[in-house]
Amino acid sequence: MPNITYQGKAYSAEPDETVLETLLRNGVLVPYSCGAGACHTCMLHCQKGDVTERSQKDIKPALKSLNYFLACQCTPESDLEVALPDDEDVYVSARCVEKQQLSPTVWRFRFEIAVPLFYHAGQFVNLKNEAGWLRSYSLSSLPVEDEHLEIQVRRMPEGQMSHWLADDFDVGMHIELEGPNGHCIYTDGEAEKPILMVGTGTGLAPLIGILRDALHQGHSGPIHLYHGARTQDEIYLHDTLNELAQQHSNVHYHACISGDDVGEMKAGRAADVAMSDHSDLKGWRLFLCGAPEMVKTMRKNAFLAGASMPDISADAFTTPEH
């Protein structure tokens, strides 16, 4: 079996084990999150040996040429010597230029970076603070219209990083940023296709970016955005989205409340309300962002309701393990 060498120590890989699994099994705590090759949190630098093609499929060409790979996607065929990424290869420094609370639990952060980042609205970046905490956040800004990068952060009860961002991180401070990653983006060429967007919590962040991108690119078909939360005060950017819907006759915005007191908003979970409003999704384009269970169930229901699998883009929150 191949050996994985990390910080001078060699660990023997079990059959069919990924580099990440070998390291974790031996108590080597490297950062990771989704385990599915999506979040890029487990990216490592291969200093000796050959990594698999699969583990580099989604890596930016510049980093690929430096032998970066995703540890959770690499089942090694021969000995490897690996290390954590060199910060200067992977990260750029981002300075916070704006921090605004949008709801009791959600904050908006805007960043400027010295080097331009070529991204699409809806992609995500990984942020790393000085303590080494690493988390993924979707971009809700639109590169052609917004000067700064924008993310939205929800304070998670058990979320170390979200507490730190909400309480201790402020305008003028710097954070390390890697990205962009992800494929949940608007692609042009089908301007008349109806679009259904469903997001829970800060799953709204990428959806707002994708929505604005679609409008910017002249999307003419109907766009229905369903944002779900448990209570009314967790629905944020409500006025902004209502205004957007007023300005564009093809944009329809629906705030959905799964709890009891719904007020003027729609009653029910966002995915359920969306499915009952649109039972035939043949020919639709879908964007699903938020809690993994919602994304999984909605993807299946949308597919069974006639949507073609390649037309369903999703960005499920990944739950960090540590």
Binding site: A36, P292, K300, F303, L304, M309
Partner: peptide, 21 residues
């Protein structure tokens, strides 16, 4: 085909995974 399989309760559990893609 996949829609038919997923809609068939007698077999759908063999085809339902977290990674539908």
């Amino acid at each position: 085909f996949y829609r038919k399989v997923l809609s068939d309760d007698s077999i759908s559990h063999f085809f339902e995974t977290t990674d539908m893609e």
